[in-house]
Design a protein around this nucleic acid. Structure first.
Lengths: 158, 158
DNA sequence: CATTTATCGTTGCAATTACAACTAAGTTGG
DNA sequence: CCAACTTAGTTGTAATTGCAACGATAAATG
């Protein structure tokens, strides 16, 4: 009898389930209250973390397809939350930044999401939390996932 | 200056990235070599873990929408990997099981995926691995995620 | 029991996303 | 300095997914 996969402890499966549910919890907040969809929130989140960046940086940081990011950025610009301008050093790049409305939305939304995260990790306890973050850092290394920093990053698939 | 979200350490974001990349690694195996898409693999994996179950059980175990599972099951039946029969105790339920071809495919595929997982967690080290699994278990509890067992489970969203 | 309510699974359709081709701009190397 | 190649971003279109309504069956309620 060949070996079966013990789904409950199979890491890719388990991580996926937890990440999915966690995502849904958060998206309930930014979607219902602020009308953002997932790609739009990813753009806002990445930009809030960096002040200004290009679409490519968001693609890289979030592992979301560039066409998805492109359309999310368009919608956010139409909604008056972002503005873009062509980089002087590289005219292919469109630099993005919040409008004041975009900044205001981020400033209102970010604490709510942090609070949601806090409530969940509160149940973890400090040791579990630290251990989890360390394990994730190691996993990232093993998977060649680049940490999210203010620096640009090389292109990858999707 | 209102607080920003430190994306690199923001758990929902970080978990999502790691889970996404891990999923892609695995799907490269079952998709390229065996032509299964993600929902199809989820059906196979859940069924392999349980011998026989209903579509609803797979929905519940994987947090995938029931229409997605329904279509994946149809394709697998067409492909000759699964067969279904109506439950005698509840004629709404369609019980699923592998055909011999389906079982053969699972038996060939499962070890490859376990190996892929092993190679990744090898870099974690035993302590990190244990800590990660424990943290995930706690997170599951905090998020009211039901563990995957051979038992049926109540309906939930998506 | 009869009526209401809930569940299993399917399917039409709308919304979302991915893929691929393309434009424009930049880089590299002979 | 010009071909060949790479990269940023957009967009048409195909594939995927989610939503909602439905038929069939079962369970719950009064």
């Amino acid at each position: 009898m060949p070996d079966k996969i013990d789904l409950q402890n199979f890491l890719p499966f388990r991580l996926n389930r937890v990440a999915t549910i966690l995502s849904r919890r958060l998206s309930a907040i930014y979607s219902e209250k602020y009308g953002l969809d997932i790609p739009q929130w990813r753009v806002m989140a990445t930009l809030g973390y960096r002040e200004t960046c290009t679409a490519q940086t968001i693609v890289c940081a979030t592992y979301t397809h560039k066409s998805t990011i492109s359309r999310a950025v368009s919608k956010l610009i139409t909604a008056g939350l972002l503005e873009s301008y062509t980089s002087t050093s590289d005219k292919r790049e469109q630099l993005l930044r919040f409008t004041s409305a975009g900044q205001a939305l981020y400033d209102e939304l970010a604490p709510q999401l942090k609070k949601a995260e806090s409530e969940i990790i509160a149940e973890l306890g400090g040791e579990n939390y630290t251990a989890l973050q360390e394990a994730l850092a190691t996993l990232e290394q093993a998977l060649d996932i680049l940490p999210v920093t203010p620096e640009p990053c090389p292109e990858h698939k999707t």
